[in-house]
Amino acid sequence: MTGVLEVRELAVRISTRRGVVRAVDGVSFDVGRGEALGLVGESGSGKSMTLRAVLGVLPPEARITAGQVLLDGTDLVPLDGAALNQIRGPKLAMIFQEPMSALNPVMRVGWQIAEGPQVHLGYSRARAAERAVELMRRVGIPDPEQRFRSYPHEFSGGMRQRVMIAIALSCDPEIILCDEPTTALDVTIQDQILRLLARLCREAGTSLVFVTHDLPVVAQVCQRIAVMYGGQLVERGEVREVLLDPHHPYTLGLVRSAPDVENVRETLVPIPGSPPSLISPPPGCRFHPRCEFAEDDCRETDPPLRPLPGGRATACLHDERCAGTLELDRARP
């Protein structure tokens, strides 16, 4: 499997008055063709910042200080805005959490969908409009000919997210980046959008990077998962293997603290403490102050992401201690 997107040792620093925030610190992952990767973590873990760095839309005070973002072998990091604009759309598309703030409120949605093909694929106005109607039909917007002339405020939240998906698909990108695309939606609408996104990507062979804090959503949409903590990648692997048998105590903590609709437990097990400061992160493993398995070596060595059998990887020195905890939880009455 060839990687469409390869992120290598990516580092993002943000300058603030209180110091330099190491928001993303040496993150590496691959996304294969047609594959969906879930990037999960709590707020402040660096997952959204990673995504924005890949897309080249970091906030002004943040910059990439090291690493590569290879899309089909081309490094995007050194490219300027004009060169990136050639890539965003036909190769790389993005779906945001809040479609209302990502859509142009004074432009008819049909023309917003048609804009990409006009600019990037050289379509005529009429042909681009036809393409927009066809895309609206594909994403399940009823009466696409009529709705073409509507404005974003005339759509419901779920329909707006469908418009966003149509825009993302409009130039047949190789990979779509999604930042919490269904967090603002109701559960029945979330189900519709997730199914739609998964089906369209499978049909077109499009890859997905799916940023979310919701583990069941990742299990539903993605084949692989990468877990971030304190700006670093702490575990990655096949979704079900990672979620059912975590090899990093942070992943284990996430799974144990979330109520599971299929598996009711007497009490939830929260992760003690709070996330680390990324201005002066703790020495050694960044998770050690909150980790129940921490040893002396965890306080000294910064553990690298090391491969495990089965294509998995963990950044825990004592990952074997996680084994069996979830089974014990399940066995408990």
Partner: peptide, 19 residues
């Protein structure tokens, strides 16, 4: 049926739970 589940099969096919 619309709740995402930790142990569900990936890439759900078929119609959504509520249209």
């Amino acid at each position: 049926a619309a709740i995402p589940k930790l142990t569900a099969a990936a890439a759900p096919d078929g119609p959504p739970a509520v249209a």
